[in-house]
């Protein structure tokens, strides 16, 4: 379990993390989602004791990392795929890391096999692709068979097969009762990987909830309606806080009413409806909604989010 209490990090006149409170529970995958520069990596470095908090504290299983008797056996982290000396081989890197905790060579070979690095393990890390670097970082994180696993943007640079592998790996680790904390700026990846989501923007926690709640809770519910009398139905549904958009000749999208209210209005006025589909906002949409005021680098051109049917994704 990871607990942050009033965790703050200030660099010069820039506040990277502004007094955040959150708890990462064991036994589930907790996603840490936020735009670039939101404070995800800074927070993770503070968990690992690499950056000192300006104020507040963060603990793993009740104590800061400096208080752990065998840190590598408690917490494994991939913070940066390039946290390796480029002139050393992957095997020697892991061997040196393992030596600090008397982790046997057998375990070094295990994590190399596990991460699919066997063929390149004796090569210098400097020649590794970003994907191989990520695999080595994950191998190092798992070296001590830790109870808590922290992965900063683990799917960056991985091929599709590697992305699926990481997804399955983190789910498996969580199913074993471990604490898994995973950051990403990719909403789509989080939607299929995480059980619980902590959303951060400009150093503040914007949302901390089960992923399903974030998808349904934000983004207003919309309903797709097909009818052969679209003009009449539009008139019937009109009201404050309700918007009706015409998508096709006989297809409307209604916001502000639930399907039952639409069906009732249609039934009472003898308007035939031949489709009534609740639309769920995608995580992407929910995320955009959550972070629209918090992103540090606004793009000038914003593209509209595409709604996804409920049950989809």
């Amino acid at each position: 379990m990871i607990e942050a209490r009033g965790l703050t990090k200030v660099y010069g006149d820039k506040t990277a993390v502004a007094g955040v409170n959150f708890t990462v529970e064991a036994g589930r995958v907790t996603g840490f989602l936020g735009p670039n520069g939101a404070g995800k990596s800074t927070t993770m470095r503070m968990i690992m004791g690499l950056d000192r908090p300006t104020s507040g504290s963060v603990t793993v299983n009740g104590s800061p990392l400096t208080g752990h008797a065998a840190p590598l056996r408690d917490v494994g982290a991939l913070l940066d795929a390039k946290a390796v000396h480029t002139s050393r081989s992957a095997y020697n890197h892991l061997l040196a890391m393992a030596a600090t905790h008397s982790i046997p060579k057998k375990r070094v070979h295990e994590v190399i096999e596990m991460t699919g690095l066997a063929e390149v393990a004796r090569k210098k890390v400097g020649g590794f692709s970003l994907g191989m670097g990520q695999r080595l970082g994950i191998a190092a994180a798992l070296l001590g068979n830790p109870q808590t696993v922290i992965l900063d943007e683990p799917v960056n640079g991985l091929d599709p097969e590697g992305v699926v592998w990481v997804r399955n790996l983190v789910k498996y680790l969580a199913s074993e009762g471990r604490t898994v904390f995973l950051s990403s700026h990719l909403m789509s990846e989080m939607a299929v990987t995480a059980d619980h989501l902590i959303v951060i923007g400009r150093g503040k926690i914007i949302a901390d909830a089960p992923i399903q709640e974030i998808i349904t809770g934000k983004g207003q519910g919309r309903t797709r309606v097909r009818t052969d009398q679209p003009d009449r139905l539009m008139q019937l549904l009109a009201g404050t806080g309700i918007s009706v958009e015409v998508r096709e000749r006989e297809l409307l999208e209604v916001t502000g009413l639930d399907p039952r209210q639409i069906a009732t209005a249609a039934l009472e006025n003898h308007v035939m409806i031949y489709e009534l589909t609740p639309l769920q906002a995608s995580l992407e949409e929910a995320y955009m909604e959550l972070t629209k005021d918090e992103v540090e680098y606004h793009s000038l051109i914003t593209t509209g989010a595409v709604p996804v049917e409920a049950g989809g994704n």
Partner: peptide
């Protein structure tokens, strides 16, 4: 993952204690 100790993992007490040399 976890070739060893997958089972007894979850049972470990959550007080930051480790199972092995530091």
């Amino acid at each position: 993952p976890s070739p060893r100790g997958a089972g007894n993992r979850a049972q470990r007490s959550g007080n930051g204690s480790s199972s092995g040399p530091g």
